Computed example of a mutant assay.
Amino acid sequence: MADEPVVWIEAESSDMARAIMAAQSTFPEFARHAELEHFRIVPAFGLVAIKAFFPDPARLTRGEHMFVTDIFTNGRSVTGTLASDPSDLPGLAAGQEVTFPIANVSDWFLVLGRRGIGGFTTDVLKKHVTAAERAGFESQEPLVWYQHRGEDGASAELAAAPVCTACGMPDLVARAHRTGACELCAGGGVRCDCSGCGAPLFRYPDAPRECHHCLVTSRK
């Protein structure tokens, strides 16, 4: 994954704050897709990742938003692997396992082929760089994943997603059944929480009600 321009925040702009709130409000649905990916023989997504805010230990109001992959959440905290080295945060390095509260999540990304879903903060980034900088960034990840939506933001894109006629939830990956039901409901599935840790799940009939993490841990 190419490095995104480093974003240091002293006081979040109102645009950034709204983008982060939108990402956090939709995070449980993202987490269900991320968890289900562990059970697929052929992955559905080219990338499953989040961005999270890591504070500077010396100045807690200042810090860096960084990509995290290999994600697990129990509904309260997130554990994952740092995808790159920080610019100037001591004690953190690419490949390191990190755990932090969900409140530190600043964005999430699901990539189907080269088309991204989520990426709320990329809309803010595009507004706060010069035209020349934007042209360069848009050929790199993560902005390259969102060229399809032009000036429309992530929230507008999700608002236009088809709403399931059975569960009333928008289908993030827009694969509605011909009946108007989402893929989950059409297959007899439900949204539920892991019986072990509380992680948000998608589950189909006869599938275990534990998340991938709990199942792996119980077998050790």
Score class of each variant (00 low, 15 high):
Ala159Thr: 13
Glu210Phe: 08
Thr217His: 09
Thr79Pro: 14
Ala207Lys: 04
Thr217Val: 15
Asp56Lys: 06
Arg178Phe: 14
His38Glu: 00
Pro86Val: 13
Leu60Ala: 12
Gln147Cys: 08
Glu97Tyr: 15
Asp15Glu: 08
Ile102Leu: 11
Thr26Cys: 06
Val144Ser: 12
Cys167Ser: 06
Ser106Asn: 03
Ala132Gln: 13
Arg219Val: 14
Thr81Phe: 07
Met21Pro: 03
Met1Ser: 10
Ala2Thr: 15
Phe54Met: 08
Gly198Pro: 13
Glu37Gln: 02
Ser195Pro: 11
Ala58Ser: 13
Val7Trp: 07
Val216Gly: 06
Ala22Asn: 13
Phe120Leu: 03
Leu47Trp: 08
Gly198Lys: 11
Ile102Trp: 04
Glu4Leu: 15
Ile20Arg: 05
Asp171Asn: 11
Ala17Trp: 04
Ala154Trp: 09
Ala103Met: 13
Phe45Met: 05
Gly80Thr: 15
Gly75Val: 02
Leu112Asn: 03
Thr61Lys: 14
Arg115Ser: 10
Arg62Ile: 15
Phe100Lys: 05
Cys182Pro: 09
Leu89His: 02
Met66Ala: 10
Pro55His: 09
Thr26Glu: 07
Ala58Met: 14
Ala22Tyr: 09
Ser195Thr: 15
Pro28Ile: 02
Thr26Val: 10
Glu151Thr: 10
Gly63Ile: 04
Asp193Gln: 15
Lys51Phe: 08
Pro90Asp: 14
Ala176His: 08
Gln24Arg: 08
Ala22Val: 05
Val216Phe: 04
Asp88Met: 11
Asp56Val: 14
Phe202Tyr: 07
Asp15Leu: 07
Leu89Glu: 05
Glu138Pro: 13
Arg219Asn: 09
Gly188Ile: 00
Leu36Thr: 10
Ala176Lys: 04
His213Leu: 12
Val163Asp: 05
Glu97Gly: 11
Met16Tyr: 01
Val7His: 04
Val124Asn: 07
Phe137Trp: 09
Gly168Val: 03
Val173Pro: 00
Arg209Tyr: 08
Ile41Trp: 02
Glu35Asp: 12
Leu36Phe: 07
Ala199Tyr: 08
Asp88Phe: 13
Leu125Asn: 02
Trp8Gln: 14
Asp88Tyr: 13
Leu201Ala: 03
Arg134Met: 10
Val111Leu: 10
Pro43Cys: 02
Phe137Arg: 03
Gly119Trp: 07
Arg219Pro: 10
Asp70Lys: 09
Ala2His: 14
Ala44Pro: 07
Val111Asp: 10
Arg40Cys: 01
His177Asp: 02
Gln140Asp: 03
Gly46Phe: 11
Gly113Pro: 01
Leu47Cys: 04
Asp107Lys: 03
Arg203Glu: 09
Arg114Gly: 11
Val111Ile: 06
His148Asn: 13
Ala34Tyr: 05
Ser155Lys: 15
Cys192Arg: 00
Leu82Ile: 11
Glu97Leu: 15
Ala131Val: 13
Pro200Val: 02
Trp8Ile: 15
Ser139Ile: 14
Val42Asp: 02
Thr130Pro: 12
Ser155Cys: 12
Lys127Thr: 09
Ser77Gln: 10
Ser106Tyr: 01
Gly198Asp: 08
Ser139Tyr: 11
Arg219Cys: 14
Gly63Lys: 09
Cys211His: 04
Ser218Leu: 08
